[in-house]
Each structure stands twice: as C-alpha cells, then as structure tokens.
Amino acid sequence: MASVDADRSWRRRERASTAGLLSGPVLWLVLFFLGPVLYVAAYSVGGIKIFPTDAGVVSVGDWKRFLVGGSVYLGLFWKSVRISLTVSVIVVLLAYPVGYFLALCVKKRKYVLLLLIIAPFLTSYLLRVLAWEVILGDTGVINSFLTSVHLRSAGHPITWLLYSQFSVVVVLAYVWVPFVALPIFVSLDNLDLSLLEAAGDLGASRLRTFWRVTLPLSLPGVVAAFVFVFVPTIGEFVTPLLVGGPSGYMYGNAIQDLFTRGTDWQTGSVLAMFLLIVVAGLMALFGRYVRVRSVAA
C-alpha cells in the first residue's frame, strides 16, 4: 500500500514538474506564435475588423482572388521562389567546399577557423547589406575599377549590378554562406573516416570516394542547409528593399507594403498565411528526409 502511495505521489510530482517545465515555452509559443498566426488567419477571411474600410464580413473572397483570380501577387510568389531557389543552390555550392575544408582538411584550430567564417555575423546585418551598395553602385568599387582599366567608358557604368534581381541574389548569397556552412560542416565532421579509408583500400579514387561515399553521407547536411536558406529567403524583404530596386521586389516586400503602406490587411494576411502554409509544407516534406540529429549533433 505504501509503495502504491509513493508511486502516485511520484507521478503527481512528475506531472507537476512536467507542467512547470512546459508552461514557459508553451505560453511563449501561444502568445507570440500561435496567437498571432490565428489572428492573421482570422483576418485573412474577414473575421476581424480593425479599419473603417474593412468589410467585417467573413468571406474567402480574398483567398479566391489570390489563388484563382489571376492575382499579380501569385506571380510575385513564384518569382520569389525562383530567386530563393537560385540563392539556395548558389549558397550550398559555395558553402560545401568551406564545410568540407573545415571538417576534413583542417587538423588544427578548425573551430577557430569556423569562428572566423561566422565572424560577419558579429556585425550589423544592415551594414553588411548596405556595404554592397558601395561595391555594386554606379560609382562603386566594381564600376570604378572597370572604368579605371578602360573596360567601361566613363559615364557608362554597368547599371544592372545594383537595384536588380542580380544584386538581391548576390547579397543574399553573401549573407547566408557562413550560416549554411555550419550544418554541412557538422554533417561532414561526423563522418566515420574509416569508411573513406575503406573506399581507398578498395581502390576508389578520391573523386570516386567523394561521389560514392562522402557526398551521399553528407546529404542530410546539404538538404538541411538548402532548407535553412530557402525557407527564410522566400519571405525576405530587407535585402530586396535595400538593393532590389523595382525588378528585385519580392513577395515579402508585398506583404510588408500591404501592412504598412495601406490598410488592406486582409490581402496582406492572405499572402502571409499562404507563405506560412507553403513553408510549413516544405518543412514537413524536408523533415521526412532530413535526420535532424545527423546535422545537429
């Protein structure tokens, strides 16, 4: 009997302790994530009225207009997907050699080097992005150099370097490479090196070993890296705002404009919810193929 009571008491304490541990994160999640998301979802169907111009009638009209009404914003979404895909591929291609070098080539001070790679994170994001204006501008570093070596005549700079999709891709790639090198590094750092030795012992060349052993084993890190870039850059708005110009305008900018430049929050909510749904779907899809532990060890 005493042992049953002790067991019950232990379970009660366990439940209380579990609830205590959970309450903080759950409250945080509810207040700052679930609540706002539900609020935006309700706004997207007219369930909330804030402005005098809001209809205040529950309707999926804005969703229909967006999805099947030939909305220009859907086209903008696909444009943003295209830019994000380009950025993600470039970033992974650039970050992989960095991660490979750190994980498999460097023997000493690899973590010091890793710190150096992520050092740009210690400076302001805004400053890093604005620095590109100085580099890519008509009177910037690149155009000045091209003029000084007579590859361009004075007064005729390359104007598409800045305020274009090109500048958005370049700056986003620059910003994300150090961040993306991390999961790739972790993935490669956890490789069982005896497998590489075994491949060599069995006569595989270094290139063949890379293609048949190293790359497949590091794919979870590569996929995770890809997702790390792709998901946030679809909704990116700061970089296009600063260096995008008219042609570099992205889906995230449209959402920001709808909320801050007008009072059409319902359309803004539709766009925001659509993005959230797509991102959640992508995360679920990738989650099936990426073993989190293999890139977060």
């Binding site: 759950v26 999640l29 509810v30 207040l31 609540g35 998301v37 539900l38 609020y39």
Partner: peptide
C-alpha cells in the same frame, strides 16, 4: 495551445 491561442485572439 489552441484553446489558449483562441482565447488570446
């Protein structure tokens, strides 16, 4: 969490 969020909304 949903109940709490609903109440918040």
């Amino acid at each position: 969490a949903g109940i709490a969020a609903g109440a918040g909304v």
